[in-house]
């Protein structure tokens, strides 16, 4: 049981990292468009004949 004294601080550290990453993700706009991003992956990246006009 004494291992709890080590494991719990590690949990809290991981927790802090998780919160930090989440805040960064929110700030960088990853949650702004919940409808579009889900489908974007399904489209081919480039249409045929990619030339600048």
């Amino acid at each position: 049981m004494a291992s709890l004294y080590l494991l719990i601080p590690i949990t809290i550290l991981l927790l802090l990292i998780a919160v930090g990453v989440y805040f960064w993700a929110v700030k960088s706009g990853q949650y702004d468009d919940l409808d579009g991003e889900a489908e974007r992956i399904l489209f081919d990246d480039e249409p045929e004949g990619e030339d600048k006009q």
């Binding site: 702004d32 468009d33 919940l34 409808d35 579009g36 600048k52 006009q53």
Partner: peptide
């Protein structure tokens, strides 16, 4: 279109 550097569309 030449001259356009970035386009981003938000569907929501």
């Amino acid at each position: 279109i030449a001259g356009v550097s970035a386009v981003r569309v938000n569907v929501t």
